[in-house]
């Protein structure tokens, strides 16, 4: 039930993001969601893309540190209270969130999550009937 996140190590310097997005464009890879975690010295770029394997391969070929990480994509309806429901389930199962970021296409809204216990998170979400997006759905989003 996991989806692959493309994680990229970035040095803090002008042009490093551009280099990555250029490579993704050249390979016809669509970026659904992007999040940048920054420190004073470097950044971590986390992305949900239409073809993570190809993205990783092409970035690595260009000498960029990139790897795939399992994350959970939770579909969120566009109404009041969905985030509260999600976090109630997670906190209720005593799970900590390592990081998260939002994703929105024209038709789908989602929250991308990485927790300190991924398997348990899936089980807790399923038990609460919260909609988890699988890989097949994810990479073909409109």
């Amino acid at each position: 039930m996991f989806v692959k996140q493309l994680t990229v190590f970035l040095e803090n310097k002008v042009g490093s993001l551009q280099e990555i997005t250029d490579i993704l464009r050249e390979n016809n890879i669509n970026v659904f969601s992007i999040s940048l975690a920054d420190t004073s010295e470097y950044g971590l770029l986390r992305m949900i893309v239409s073809n993570p394997e190809l993205g990783r391969e092409q970035l690595c070929n260009a000498g960029i540190s990139a790897r795939l990480t399992d994350v959970i994509a939770v579909r969120l309806e566009n109404r009041v209270g969905t985030l509260a429901e999600l976090f109630n389930v997670i906190a209720g199962a005593d799970i900590g969130i390592e990081y998260m970021y939002a994703m929105a296409t024209s038709k789908t809204g989602a929250m991308i999550l990485k927790t300190n216990n991924q398997e348990k998170t899936i089980a807790a979400l399923q038990a609460a009937r919260i909609h988890i997006l699988d890989e097949n759905t994810m990479y073909h989003l409109q």
Binding site: Q5, T7, F9, A37, T39, Y42, L44, R46, C60, S65, A66, R67, T69, E98, Y99, K114
Partner: peptide
């Protein structure tokens, strides 16, 4: 230098 096999998706791991 941080190579692909050594880095993590979490800042705290990199720290």
């Amino acid at each position: 230098e941080v190579e692909e096999r050594f880095f993590s998706d979490e800042i705290k791991e990199l720290e």
